[in-house]
Design a protein around this nucleic acid. Structure first.
Lengths: 118, 118
DNA sequence: CGGCATCCTTGGAGATACTG
DNA sequence: CAGTATCTCCAAGGATGCCG
């Protein structure tokens, strides 16, 4: 019964992912945060509110990619978005509590990097 | 001097990645660890030595993928590999100090997941 | 300024089959 | 058992252009 692809396949996750995220929330967390762009973007928001093109420059992502990443992050509750529709529109992004909750993770990564990166 | 693709382009990183990893080691760490499979595999090795097919079952990765992931991790110094060439060959993987150094990161992720997942 | 729409390229990863 | 080889597919992401 290793690879029974039951039609209860309503999730878009593979069964492997499902199995993993069931096991512990480390894996669940990794899967929710997922891509490098998400991490990098979240990390860039640590020091407070940023606007779209700031993030674009800071991360180096294309506007297309950044837009999609921010959409994802907002949908998942990691960031908040505040828009000013005045003359030149402005769009500000901040971390939610959920997003800010990742700071310890960043600190742990920072420590690790200090010891092991080059 | 934003996008001078100097022929000192011996790295395989894009300049965006380069810029990011220069900024801080959080991003550097994220880029080195990279894919979800690497994280999941490393995390599976926390509780000690595992062999190839154990990891294969535990992670759900295909042998092809797992093999490549382990190669990467070994090349980057995250895991050690010990082979026993007896009758049925056996191959054991363990975390190096560098790999084990990620445990605080896993703990931070675990904490975060406990608060924010599901 | 922010951000979609479109096109296109890449490689990450599954499935399968084969070897020492 | 522990991989390697091959084929294939799909999603992530860059480039560009346009629009409110």
């Amino acid at each position: 019964m290793t690879t029974q692809p039951t039609d209860a396949d309503t999730e878009e996750k593979t069964d492997a992912e499902q199995k993993n995220s069931d096991l512990c929330n480390v894996v669940g967390a990794v899967e929710e945060i997922g891509t490098e762009w998400k991490l990098i973007t979240l990390h860039n928001l640590r020091d407070g509110e940023k606007r779209f093109n700031e993030l674009k420059r800071a991360t180096g992502a294309s506007s297309y990619t950044l837009s999609r990443v921010l959409d994802d992050l907002e949908a998942e509750g990691f960031v908040d978005n505040r828009k000013e529709l005045e003359s030149p529109v402005a769009s500000y992004y901040t971390l939610t509590e959920k997003g800010a909750g990742l700071c310890p993770v960043f600190e742990a990564l920072d420590d690790w990097g200090a010891n092991w990166l080059e």
